[in-house]
C-alpha cells in the first residue's frame, strides 16, 4: 500500500512541477498562439496530477486531500524526477524539456494503462490522449529550432547540454516502482529511438554517454525545487487553510 501511495505521488509530482514550470510562461510566450499552447499543456499536466493526488489522498486517508499533498509537503517529500524542475531557460530549453519528458510519459502511460491498479490505469488512458498532442507539438518545435537558424541551432545544443544529464534518472526505478509499477528500464531503448529520430531530423547530436544525475525520485533534488515550492505553496503556508 505504501509503495502504491509513493508511486502515485511520484507520478503526480512530476506532472505538477512541470505544470508549474510551464505556467511561468503565462503571458511571456514568444507569440500569443505559443503562449496559449504551453499553458494548455500546463493545464493538461495539472489536471492529470490532480487525478493522481486525489487518488493518493483516498489511499492515505487521515484527512489528506489533493491540496494538502500539493501544498503542504516539503521538498524532501516530493518525488518528481529532476528533469521537470530544471529552469525554463529560453524557449528552446523549455520545448526540449517538454519533448524529453512527454516522449517518456507517453511510453510510461502506454504501459500504465494496462496496470492492475484500475484507477492508475484509467488516469493513464485518459492522459494518453492529451500526451499525444504534447509529443507532437514539442517534437515539431525541437525540429524547427534544431534545423532552423545558426542561432536557434546553437541554443538547442546549449539546451541539450543543460538537460541531458537529467534524463537517465527516468529509467532507473526507485523502490516503489519495483513492486508493481511500470518497468521503466525497459522503456529506455524505445525512448532513445524516438528521441534519436527527432534529433536526426533536427540535425542535433545525441550526446555521448555522460554522468547522469539522480535523486529526484527519492526526494534528493537540485536547488531549483525549493524555489518552485516557495512560490507554489506560498499562499497555503502564509494563510493556512485559505479558501476562495
Amino acid at each position: 500500500m505504501s509503495f502504491l501511495i509513493d508511486y502515485t505521488l511520484h507520478l503526480a509530482d512530476s506532472n505538477l512541477i512541470l505544470a508549474q514550470r510551464n505556467a511561468e510562461w503565462c503571458g511571456h510566450g514568444p507569440i500569443l498562439e505559443q503562449d496559449i499552447a504551453i499553458t494548455n499543456i500546463s493545464l493538461d499536466l495539472l489536471g492529470q496530477s490532480r487525478n493522481m493526488y486525489q487518488y493518493a489522498a483516498t489511499l492515505m486517508g487521515n484527512g489528506a486531500t489533493e491540496d494538502t499533498l500539493a501544498y503542504l509537503r516539503t521538498e524532501r517529500e516530493f518525488k518528481n524526477c529532476l528533469l521537470v524542475e530544471q529552469p525554463n531557460g529560453d524557449w528552446g530549453q523549455t520545448v526540449l524539456r517538454q519533448f524529453l519528458y512527454s516522449t517518456f510519459q507517453q511510453l510510461l502511460y502506454q504501459q500504465l494503462q494496462k496496470n492492475t491498479d484500475e484507477q492508475l490505469a484509467a488516469i493513464a488512458a485518459k492522459a494518453l490522449k492529451e500526451i499525444a498532442y504534447h509529443v507532437r507539438w514539442s517534437s515539431e518545435w525541437v525540429i524547427r529550432l534544431g534545423d532552423g537558424t545558426v542561432e536557434s541551432h546553437q541554443r538547442m545544443l546549449h539546451a541539450i547540454d543543460e538537460l541531458w544529464r537529467y534524463t537517465g534518472e527516468m529509467f532507473i526505478p526507485a523502490d516503489y516502482e519495483n513492486s508493481f509499477g511500470v518497468n521503466v528500464t525497459a522503456l529506455k531503448d524505445e525512448w532513445m529511438q524516438k528521441v534519436t529520430s527527432v534529433f536526426e531530423e533536427a540535425t542535433l547530436p545525441i550526446p555521448e554517454k555522460i554522468f547522469m544525475q539522480t535523486g529526484g525520485k527519492t526526494g534528493v533534488h537540485t536547488e531549483h525545487l525549493g524555489y518552485i515550492l516557495t512560490e507554489l505553496q506560498y499562499l497555503q503556508r502564509a494563510y493556512p487553510g485559505a479558501e476562495w
Binding site: 498562439e33 505559443q34 496559449i36 499552447a37 494548455n40 493545464l43 493538461d44 492529451e130 498532442y133 507539438w137
Partner: peptide, 13 residues
C-alpha cells in the same frame, strides 16, 4: 491550422 492549442483545451485555432 494556426495552432493545435486554442482558447480552451478542447479546441485548435
Amino acid at each position: 491550422l494556426l495552432s493545435e492549442f486554442g482558447s480552451t483545451a478542447c479546441k485548435a485555432l
